[in-house]
Design a protein around this nucleic acid. Structure first.
Length: 375
DNA sequence: AAGGTCATCAACCGCTCCCCC
DNA sequence: TGGGGGAGCGGTTGATGACCT
């Protein structure tokens, strides 16, 4: 029992369209549109084609202002970014690219960009885990804020060094822009992943009633699951506390005034008294966060990391496109709970940003320092 | 030169969404 | 309110050409 087919497949022509058929379809649609019904259009136009086929042919090929091939680097980056943000929503992605069709974008992804994307994932999979807990010499926070030399850090998700960023970094703005786009895409992917992390409703309710943003150090709960040295192993079962990530008091002051340092400033007022630095120091080994059972704290680390990463990736964009910036600032924040795996990855991504800013020589790497340093 | 392999992309298929009756 | 049907979408297929052996 299936639904009836949209057309009689025995009586319609299939396969590539001829120039004559294109001309008939183009002429008809330009005069009458789809006449209110794509299914009926081929009969009215005198075409021996399925209505769906006519629609597809018009939308993907005959429609005016359609561009085929020749994707620019900017389009590549946007597709990568949007894919990381929303996945294979090709129609939505195509709508952001004037003249591009969803079919074109989908094909381009499958034949070109997907390989690049998978290569990045493969590179990430071969990188070593973050250093063990208590290895203060590898604390990225303290070194990024007080030492000019790049610290010894966990391997970045996006291998910036492999792209030749050491040395004459400032000479290759295109590369820098590309890398920042990669970071941004990775970040949006993490946010999406975070949104799908699971937690029981009971744990949510329990945590919500016992935690408070204003006193992070006291808002603790005891997870029933044991801590793991592998952050990804038990993530879906941990009863992370609820945290209202839409609470404006938790948000750093994102601003579009990229020319002003204050617009990218993340002071102690945004994170609580120095909590970001403290947390990042702890999170240099994510296990520390787990073992300390400072679950609420960890929740805030996640949110703050996302905020900082958004600003960082926007800051190191050399031209900071307004639309991208706005998208970063307004992107939906996770409403779930920190998945340890995601948190660990975020830490490493943040590390990448930190190193990147150091390489870039950007004065904005103060984003990794405390608010007190800026005043 | 011929056969094989791979990349590309137009087109198709089947499903879901959503509007209308 | 529920069902029918068109529109739209994402995944997949297949034809074609380029490249390799």
């Amino acid at each position: 029992m299936g639904r009836s087919p949209c057309c009689d497949k025995a009586s319609v022509k299939r396969g590539p369209w001829s120039e004559e058929e294109d001309a008939i379809l183009r002429s008809f649609v330009e005069r009458f549109g789809n006449a209110g019904n794509w299914i009926a259009l081929p009969h009215k136009a005198g075409l021996k084609r399925c209505g769906k086929s006519c629609r597809l042919r018009w939308l993907n090929y005959l429609r005016p202002a359609i561009r085929h091939g020749g994707f620019t680097d900017e389009e590549d980056n946007l597709i990568l970014s949007l894919y990381g943000e929303m996945g294979s929503k090709w129609s939505v992605i195509a709508s952001k690219l004037p003249g591009r069709t969803d079919n074109d974008v989908k094909n381009y992804w499958n034949t070109k960009l997907k390989k690049r994307y998978l290569a990045a994932v493969a590179t990430e999979a071969t990188t070593p885990p973050p250093p063990a807990a208590g290895d203060d010499d590898n604390n990225p926070t303290t070194q990024a804020s007080s030492q000019p030399a790049p610290p010894t850090l966990p391997a970045p998700l996006v291998n910036l060094d492999a792209a030749g960023l050491d040395g004459a970094v400032g000479d290759n703005d295109e590369l820098l822009l590309h890398k920042s786009e990669q970071l941004y895409a990775e970040l949006m992917g993490l946010i999406e992943q975070q949104q799908y992390s699971t937690i029981t409703a009971a744990a949510v309710d329990a945590a919500t009633t016992t935690t408070s943003w204003s006193s992070p150090s006291t808002g603790t709960t005891s997870p029933t699951a044991s801590s793991s040295t592998d952050g990804s192993s038990s993530s879906s079962n941990l009863p992370w506390p609820a945290v209202d990530v839409h609470d404006s008091t938790m948000m750093p002051p994102l601003s579009e005034s990229s020319g002003s340092s204050s617009g990218l400033f993340f002071g102690s007022h945004a994170f609580g008294s120095g909590s970001f630095q403290d947390l990042l120091g702890s999170a240099a080994s994510f296990d520390d966060v787990m073992l300390s059972q400072e679950m609420l704290l960890a929740s805030k680390v996640l949110v703050n990391m996302i905020s900082v990463l958004m600003a960082l990736t926007a800051a190191i964009r050399l031209d900071v496109p307004a639309k991208l910036w706005a998208r970063g600032a307004n992107a939906p924040f996770p409403t779930g709970h920190p998945n340890p795996f995601v948190l660990e990855r975020l830490l490493r991504l943040l590390t990448s940003c930190s190193v990147f800013c150091e390489h870039k020589g950007s004065p904005r790497h103060f984003a990794l320092t405390t608010g007190d340093d800026e005043s």
